[in-house]
Computed example of a mutant assay.
Amino acid sequence: MAILVTGGAGYIGSHTCVELLNAGYEIVVVDNLSNSCSESLRRVKELTGRDFEFYPINLLNRQDLESVFRQHRIEAVIHLAGLKAVGESVSLPLRYYHNNISGSIVLCELMQEYAVKKIVFSSSATVYGTSESVPISENVPLGATNAYGRTKLMIEEMMRDLHVSDAAWSIALLRYFNPIGAHSSGRLGENPNGIPNNLMPYITQVAVGELEELQIYGNDYSTLDGTGVRDYIHVVDLARGHLKALEKVMATSGVEAYNLGTGQGYSVLEMVSAFERVTGRSVPYKITARRPGDIGMCYSDPTKAERELGWVAQKGIDEMCLDSWRWQTYNPQGYGIFHYESQPVI
């Protein structure tokens, strides 16, 4: 029996594959490589000493995906595949709705057909919309403000309806906050194309000289220093949260949502300061206008995940910064070339 990991070649997916393999699970990976790279999976095999099957297919291709279910005895699914750029989703909403929702429908239809009714779904804190009541618990009102977040919310609702239709379904909806960091080996990390959408790869690319300066969007929020506050979580902690959620869905039925965050908020300037302190690298920045839809403060209440999954984030902000910098220095061109001695980490 194997765990099917959709989107397993991506940033969160590759780290989750490492944790699954190290925990003794058999895995099968599907990923269309639209915003990921197969090199990450080669490195997963190298890091774990384990082999697994990989299929470069799109979830929208029902025939190809069904061949995976026919060839393997799938026990449960960790569903991470999907388009993920908030800004792009605003300008290309139909692409996001078609890809994320239709792909999830095809996946769930095949799961139902092959009697695989255990799934861990990669959702997002964007389902909470503009709520500035912090910390954010799972029972606050939901209301995404962009196409990306709405696809996550719609898929959550679809999965709740699945359980209503058949109580045998066991579903964990994992609402991520802001994953950063990288594998401590420097072999796996976030590999954005162009100017990064997320803060930490933006910081590291400025620090390594790939970009001239960091753009900070707004310094007039009602926060300690005026810049936006977010809950940053190490990607390895996030990956381990998937294992805990998998254990839960394998042992029970039902549908539950869980925040995966640290419960601690850091501002953009605090993140820049922490990075400079632990790496010794300077990060020049420029304050620009707020981005539409951004809110001042957002961090999680992760107590439900601790209570029901036995999961708590272990890694602090210094480790997040150091691991991010190690990844950047060893992989200045992302997964293209690995430079183990490219430059000192600190």
Rank of each mutant, 00 (worst) to 15 (best):
L211P: 12
M250E: 13
E190D: 11
G24M: 07
E306C: 12
R277K: 13
R240G: 11
Q205C: 05
E113D: 09
M1D: 09
T303F: 13
Q343W: 08
K117R: 11
F275A: 08
S14T: 11
N100I: 05
R290G: 07
N139F: 06
S300M: 12
Y114R: 02
I155W: 08
M111L: 06
E53D: 14
L21M: 10
T279E: 12
G194E: 11
C321M: 15
R230L: 10
I317A: 04
H242E: 10
M159R: 01
E210K: 13
A172C: 13
A172N: 12
R175K: 15
D231L: 04
S324W: 03
G7T: 02
R240K: 15
E66K: 05
H234G: 10
Q264T: 15
L260R: 03
V312R: 15
H79F: 09
M297K: 13
Y340L: 14
L153Q: 12
A251Y: 00
E113N: 04
R307C: 05
S34I: 00
D166G: 10
A167N: 15
G82D: 04
S102T: 00
L174T: 06
V345L: 04
T288H: 14
T223K: 01
G336L: 13
Y25W: 12
V29L: 05
C321Q: 03
V29Q: 02
E19V: 13
V86N: 14
D318M: 08
V44G: 13
L80N: 11
A251M: 10
P141R: 11
G263W: 01
R175N: 13
A85K: 01
M154H: 03
A207N: 03
A245F: 04
S38F: 08
N99V: 02
S253L: 05
V68Q: 04
D231I: 04
P93Q: 07
H242T: 10
H183K: 10
T227H: 02
P135A: 09
E39Q: 05
R70I: 15
A168R: 15
V278M: 12
Y335V: 03
L83Q: 07
V44C: 14
V106N: 08
Y340A: 11
L162P: 01
V28E: 06
S104H: 08
Y266T: 11
S124K: 04
L188V: 09
V77M: 04
I57C: 02
L199N: 00
P332L: 08
G241P: 12
I346W: 02
E132V: 14
H234Y: 14
I12C: 12
Y335C: 05
M297F: 04
V90Y: 05
I3A: 02
Q71W: 11
